[in-house]
Design a protein around this nucleic acid. Sequence first.
DNA 1: ATGTGC
Length: 493
Amino acid sequence: MNEREVIRVASVRDFKKVSDTVWEIPSSYKDGMRVPARIYATERLIREMDDGVIDQVTNVATLPGIVGHAFCMPDGHWGYGFPIGGVAAMDARSGVISPGGIGFDVNCGMRLVLTNLSFGEVRERLRDLVDRLFERVPAGVGSTGLLKISQDEFRRVVEEGARWCVRNGYGWDEDLERTEEFGCISGADASKISNKAVERGYKQIGTLGSGNHYLEIQVVKPENIFDPQLARAFGITLPEQVAVMFHCGSRGFGHQVATDYLQLFLKVMEKKYGIRILDRELACAPFNSPEGRDYFAAMKCAVNMSFANRQVILHRVREVFSDVFGRDPAEMGLHQVYDVAHNTAKLEEHILDGQPRQLLVHRKGATRAFGPGAHALPPVYRNTGQPVIVGGSMETGSYLLAGVETGSQTFFSTAHGSGRTMSRKQAKRMFQGKQLQRDMEGRGIYVRTVSFSGLAEEAGPAYKDIDEVVGATELAGISRRVARLIPVGNVKG
DNA sequence: ATGTGC
C-alpha cells in the first residue's frame, strides 16, 4: 500500500536552481520560448515530476503575449496542453486566451465550511451524516441535482452565480462575501453559450461529479494548527473542530463551453490570426478578438455556474446537519470560510518591472492566493490575506493556507491539491475499491461512493505527499500554512 | 474533468 509508482523521473540537469524550491528552465531550452519557465518544487518533488510537465510548461512559454515566466506549481502534473498546476499571465492587449490553460472543468474549486461542533459531538452521528449527504449531494458521471429549474432560469443562474442562489433561499448573505468574486464574476454573457451547454448543465446544480471531486467531513486537530493567529481569524477556535470541505466544478456545462470554443479557436487560430503553436492542445485566440472576448464571456458563465453549484451544495450541507442534529443550522456555526477557484483565467492588475499591467492570468490547477491588502478581498480578509483551500487526497488530508505578499512572484498563485503521481489506470491496477473502503474505515474514514473503481483511482498513494507540496509553497513564499484538516467522512463520485 | 476515447 505504501509503494509509490512514479510515472517517469524528470531530468534535473537542464534546470537552473534559483532557490531550494524554484527551478528555472531558460528560454534557450526550446525554440520559440518567449520567457523562461519556472517550476516550484522541492528537489524530491521535481524528481518525481513527469517529463510531460517540462515539455508542457516550456510549450506554454511560447504563447503570444506571455509575460514574466511560465509557471508550474509543486503539485504539477501532465495535463491537456498546459500542465495541471500551470500559471501563465498574458498581456491583455497583445496576449492570447487558451482553454487549455483554464481546464475543461472551468472554476473547478474548493469550498470550506466550519462548524462549531467538536469531533466528540459528531463522532456517533458521522455515518448518518455521510449517508444523508450521499443522498442529498448527488455524485458520479451524469448525476443530476434536486434543484428543478428551466433552461431559461439556468441562463439567469450562469449570469448571477451564487447571488441567484442566495436570492432564492439557498444560502446566507455572508456566504457571498466569503466567495471569490463575491460569488458572481462580472461580464458573464449567456448569449455566448450554446444550447447544448445549457442542456447539459441545467439539471446539474448541486451535484459533485466524479473523478477527484468529493465532499468531506474533516477535523482540525490542535497539533495541526501552524499559524494560530490566522487560524483564529479564519474561524478555527475549538479543539478538534469539525469542518466540511468540498471540491467540484461546472460539470458538463463548463466542459461543453470549453469544447465549443476549443473547436472555434482551432478554426480561426492559424487562418485568421496567424498564430502557430507547438501543440494543438494549446489552441488559443487573441484575448482582444471577437472569438477571445466571446470565450471569456462564456467561460465566465461556467465560473458562475460553478459558484452556484457549490452554493447549493453548501445549502444541502446545512439541511443535512439540521436534520441529523435537530437544530437550526445557524446554531451549529456552518459558516463558510471561503470558496476559491483553481481553474480560471482572470483579468487582473499586477506590477511587472515596477509598472502596473493589465494581465490575463491563466490558473489551471492553481489557486489564486492574494496577499494582505489586496483590494479584491472582502474586508474580513483584507488584513489576513486570502484563505487558500488545498484539497489533498481523500486518505491523507487537506490544508487551509493564506496568501502572502511575496506571492507577487507567481502573480499571487499557489498549489491546488496533491497532484497525481500515478495514472488512473495504474491506480486501478494497484488498488481495489471495496478493499480500500474497508481499509479506510479501519483508519477512521467512513467513505461512500457511487463507483468503486473510481474510488481506487483516488487512493492516497496515487498522489504526491500533500505535506511536501504545501511545504514547498511556504518555503518559496507563495502561500503560508494555517491548518491541516484530517478526513473522517467522505462522499465520493 | 466529461451524457468518459479522433
